[in-house]
Amino acid sequence: MADIQELMHQAPPSLAQYRRQRAAADLYQRALPGTIFYGIALAITAWVGGYFPHYGSAMAAVFALYGVLWYLRWVHTPPQDSSNVQASDTWWWRHWTLVNVGCVLWCLFFLAVGHLEQGLSTAFLVAAVSTIAFSSAGCETYSLHKRQALWVVVLLQVPALLYFAVAVPALWPVCAVLAVNFIYQLTHIRRRAAEYDTQMAIEHALLTSRTEVERLSRLDALTGLANRREYDSTFRTHWRLAARQQGNLALMVVDLDHFKRINDTYGHLAGDACLQQVARLTGELFKRSSDMVARIGGEEFAVLLPDTNAEEAMQLAQTLRRTLAETPLQWDEHRIPVTASIGVDCMRWDLDLTPQASFSRIDSACYTAKARGRNRVVQA
C-alpha cells in the first residue's frame, strides 16, 4: 500500500524545480538550430564576398567548428532528474558555454568581414543584417535567462562594433545603427524575460491544480484511503497480471457491523470517526508496498494482497478482525465497539473468469459472514 499511497499523495514539483526542468528543455531545443543558421549566413556572406577562392581553408575550418558545435549541443541532452540541483546547474552552464562559443565565432567572422571589406560592401551588409537577425532571435530564444540573453547579444556584436568604431571609420554609420538596435534589445530582453517567468508561473499553477484534482479523484476524502475508482483500476491490473502468470492474488471484502446503529445512536460525526479509525488500523496492518486498502462503499473496505495465498489471507483477515474488535472507538465518554464481517479468498483461476466474478464471489462470502452472526471471517 505504501507505493500506492505515495503516488496518490505525491506532490507536484516546486515552481523552482519546474522552471529549472522546463528552462533546460527550452534551452536545448532552442539552441540546437542556431548553428545551422550561422552556417547558412556564413555561406551566403562568403559567396557574396567571393571568399571561398581566397580563404577556402579558413571557411572550411569555421564550417567544421559550427558542425562540431551542433553535434555537441545535440548530444548534450538535459538531465532527467531535475531534483538534482547540482547536476542541473552543471548541465546548464555547459550548454550556455556551447551557445556562447557559437556567438563568439560569428562575431569574429563579422569582424573579419568588416576588416576585409573596409566599407559598406554587399558582403558586409549581409553580415550586418545577419548579426541583427541573430541578436534579435537571441532576445526571444534565450529570454528564459535574462543575464545569459544579454550576454548572447553582447558577444554577437559588441566586440566587432568596438573594433569598427576604432579601426574602420567608413563603418561608423552602421555601428551607430547597430548600437541603437542593441539598446532596444536590452529593453526587449527585460520584457521577454518577465513574460517567460509569468508563463512558467501560470503553467506551474495549472500543473499543480491538475495534479491535485487527479489526486483527489483517486482518494476517499474522509479516510485518505484509495477510493472505489482507484481500487477498481488497481484490482483489474493486478488480476490480469496474476491470471496471466497463474499467480497468487488475495482479496478481502470488509463490511463494518451495525454501522447504521452507530450513526443513529452517536451521530454521523461518530460514524465518520469510526471509519477513520478502521482505515488507520487497516493501513497499519497492511504495509507492504504492493498491498492496497481502499474504501469501496459507505462502510465497506477492500484489501488487495498480491503474492498472498488463501491460507495467508485467512490469517491476515483474522488478525484484522481481532484488531478491530479489540480497539473500540473512544467517542466523548463512550467506548463504541467496532467489529467487521470479512469475506476473503485467493483468486481461483478455475472459477474466476473475470475480475468481477472474483469480487462477487468474495463479496458473497462477506454477506455469509454477516448471516452467520457477524464479527467473523468466511473464506469464499
Rank of each mutant, 00 (worst) to 15 (best):
R94H: 15
H95W: 02
G67D: 14
L72S: 04
W70F: 09
V75P: 02
L111F: 03
N100Y: 01
A61M: 13
E117G: 05
E117W: 00
V99D: 02
H95N: 11
L108H: 06
V104K: 08
P78L: 01
W106Q: 04
A87C: 10
P78Q: 05
N84H: 13
N84S: 13
V104E: 02
P53F: 11
F109Y: 12
H115V: 14
H115D: 09
A87G: 13
P78I: 00
L108K: 09
A87T: 14
P53I: 10
Q80I: 05
S83A: 11
L98F: 03
Y71R: 02
A112V: 04
A58N: 00
G102H: 01
C103K: 01
Q86C: 04
R73G: 05
W93V: 04
L111W: 01
L108R: 07
C107S: 12
V104T: 14
S88W: 00
V75L: 09
C103F: 00
S83L: 06
R94I: 12
P79F: 02
L72E: 04
D89C: 13
L69S: 07
A60H: 15
V101S: 07
V99T: 06
L108M: 12
Y66K: 05
A58T: 00
F109M: 13
Q86E: 07
R94P: 05
L69N: 04
A58P: 01
Q80P: 07
M59G: 15
A64D: 13
V75S: 11
L65I: 14
L105A: 07
L116I: 07
T77K: 14
Q80W: 03
Y71E: 05
H95S: 08
P53H: 11
P53E: 12
M59H: 15
R73I: 07
L116C: 10
Q86H: 06
V113S: 13
E117N: 11
V62F: 03
V62C: 10
S83F: 05
A58E: 00
W92S: 03
E117C: 06
F109N: 10
V68M: 12
Y71C: 08
W91V: 02
Y71G: 02
D81H: 12
W93A: 04
T97S: 12
W91H: 03
V62G: 03
V85F: 06
G102L: 08
C103T: 00
E117K: 05
V75C: 09
W70I: 02
W70D: 02
C107Y: 01
T97M: 07
E117D: 08
V85M: 05
S83T: 08
S57G: 13
V68R: 11
D81R: 14
V85L: 06
L108A: 10
W92Y: 12
A58W: 00
A112E: 03
T90C: 11
T77R: 15
N100P: 00
S82H: 13
T90R: 11
H115Q: 15
C107R: 06
W96S: 03
W91T: 00
W74K: 03
A61N: 09
H115Y: 11
H76C: 10
V68W: 11
H76K: 08
